[in-house]
């Protein structure tokens, strides 16, 4: 048992994910156990097809495991109804994607405020939250710009603001620096890092070692199995599953 003082924000236990069945079945994850604590940034590295994106979508409740449990702040997402899961997703989990996924017809502030409004927060308050998040990522002055009028790095900052608005405790990032040049990519990692230093748990999926190196721990995934990790890790929490 872990004796860590902080509670895990994310805990995956023996997670399997099989796409399709019979002959055509693809085992994306084969018994992955994985924990991210508050204040920690964990990177997941692996070649394409290793299961790293599946891991992230399952961690965020966007996909369901075939077996195993997925706890976010102590709540097992697997046991929840669709509506409850969607609610947990909105209030606890923030996503950052490679393609930014901003709504082009909305300003930066409106994009960031959107998840708060979906939570039922009044629009004045949602806008205040959005401005605070934009301030945190250093682009408060761009609040009323539209995505098309921003550089890639600025758009990704908006996406990060959207992922952290309203004090979300789990930030999931899938190749967030993919489309950016090295220096802009580094600024994005600095922001993710700062958010984790401020108490969030972060999971960063990447195939770039240079970016993974910003994490406290790096988990290596091969064929849906965690093969190794590096960093100051509570190893017992990481490698419980092992090879099937």
């Amino acid at each position: 048992m872990s004796t860590k003082a902080t509670a895990p924000v994310l805990r995956l236990t023996d997670v399997h994910r099989v796409h399709g069945d019979g002959e055509a079945a693809v085992h994306a994850l084969r018994g992955v156990s994985f924990t991210a604590y508050a204040g920690e940034l964990v990177a997941v590295m692996g070649p394409s097809g290793s299961g790293k994106s599946t891991l992230l979508t399952i961690a965020g409740g966007l996909d369901q495991p075939t077996s195993g449990s997925v706890e976010v702040e102590g709540t097992d997402l697997v046991g929840l109804s669709h509506a409850e899961r969607a609610r947990t997703r909105r209030t606890s989990v923030g996503y950052v994607f490679q393609g930014f996924n901003l709504v082009p017809a909305l300003t930066a502030a409106e994009n960031v405020a959107l998840p708060r409004e979906l939570d039922g927060v009044r629009s004045g308050e949602a806008r205040r939250d959005a401005l605070a998040a934009l301030e945190e990522v250093g682009i408060a002055d761009l609040a009323d710009r539209f995505p098309d009028d921003m550089s890639g790095g600025q758009q990704q900052r908006v996406a990060i603001a959207r992922a952290i608005v309203g004090e979300r405790r789990l930030v999931l990032a899938d190749e967030p620096t993919g489309a950016l040049d090295t220096e802009t990519g580094e600024e994005i990692l600095r922001l993710l890092r700062a958010r984790c230093d401020a108490g969030a748990a972060g999971v960063l999926v990447t195939h770039e070692a240079r970016h993974a190196a910003w994490a406290d721990r790096v988990v290596f995934l091969r064929d849906g199995v965690v093969v190794d990790e590096s960093g100051s890790a509570p190893v017992d929490d990481l490698l419980e599953a092992g090879h099937a």
């Binding site: 600095r190 890092r193 070692a209 190196a213 994490a215 590096s230």
Partner: peptide, 20 residues
């Protein structure tokens, strides 16, 4: 390969910490 990769990754993490 995996052991070397972990070791190199640890070095990379150390350099990145210095950069921060």
């Amino acid at each position: 390969i995996q052991r070397q990769r972990s070791a190199s990754m640890q070095a990379l993490q150390d350099y990145t910490r210095l950069k921060r």
